[in-house]
Design a protein around this nucleic acid. Structure first.
Lengths: 183, 183
DNA sequence: GTCTATACCACGATAGAC
DNA sequence: GTCTATCGTGGTATAGAC
């Protein structure tokens, strides 16, 4: 049911999807949904939270086994970031486009996770700069540019095409290191 | 009036903004809007079209005075792309997030322009590759990554902060050339 | 947990006077 | 080109039976 809502929110947007749409896709009556969620906003909040948790967990996990070299850490983070967005494009789209439809109190936990994920990359970059391994023109703008590669994936990348996810992740890691002036 | 609709569409989304919202912001009655536009969708279509035209025109114009060197051409395209997104963040957001709320026939002209703009960058890159000046890991993915830097700007960049638009444009041009392996 | 039925409201859009 | 008034529809959500 979260999956159904996700599919609809991703293709028509949160405000463009009605409770009736979700119910119809599930072959239920609209009222049946309220046994599972307090409101339409709570469905979105759940999706946004799950998306941020999965993303943050993935980044945290790969960083643990990435060793201490800044280059390897960047490569691990960017590979995970890219794989996440390439394999869960609908969740990525909803998280990035519809989060702002939530009232602040429902979005707050997810926003906190987002800030932590952003900080994870920035800290690795700044450590690399301090070690003299990276020479980005601007740490914050470069971190944003690196992150943007993944976030924009759902808008052009076709997993069924000639470029498989693993190769794409390598390409993004390579591009990130080039931006940083690493290696 | 387009400006008012743009402001509301950017902050609440197309489906999240009602005709009544727009009318109230203009201190008009809802019915008064229909003297100017046939429907709510036509307001969005106009904004989407204007946004794509301004973007495409900007790219075309700078390319004319960028000379024949691929590096200079990339620099010119990326600078224009970045300046556009940094100085018109609301238009960029609406164009990129709400275009899909339009029926295909209303969105078609803008989509055609978008494809042309995408092709502009890709052609410069592929020419640079053919000349042996660029060595991107993957031309299409690298073009997408370069474009993504600009598209994501409205979500983090604050023109009022310490980083001015002109410096940012230079940073993005530098990052693009690094990704391409140019110079 | 799902149903039928419905309350109540906001939606986009139109009619017709001025 | 803006107004008042309103039409018809579809929105979120609830009540209460099973």
């Amino acid at each position: 049911m979260l999956e159904t809502a996700l599919r609809l929110f991703a293709s028509q947007g949160f405000h463009g999807t009605s409770i009736r749409d979700v119910a119809k896709a599930l072959e239920l009556q609209p009222s049946a949904l309220y046994a599972h969620f307090a409101s339409k906003e709570h469905i979105l909040a759940e999706l946004v939270q799950l998306g941020h948790e999965a993303h943050h967990e993935a980044l945290r996990k790969v960083l643990l086994s990435a060793g201490t070299e800044p280059e390897a850490q960047v490569r691990a983070l960017i590979r995970a970031h890219t794989v996440m967005h390439a394999t869960h494009p609908q969740l990525s789209v909803v998280v990035n486009e519809e989060s702002h439809a939530l009232p602040p109190e429902l979005a707050a936990p997810a926003m906190a996770l987002r800030n932590q994920s952003t900080a994870l990359l920035l800290e690795v970059i700044e450590r690399g700069v301090a070690m003299g391994r990276f020479t980005p023109p601007h740490a914050v703008a470069t971190a944003a540019a690196i992150s943007a590669m993944g976030v924009r994936l759902p808008y052009w990348y076709e997993p069924a095409g000639t470029l498989d996810v693993d190769t794409l992740a390598d390409i993004h890691a390579e591009l990130a290191l080039r931006m940083l002036g690493g290696r």
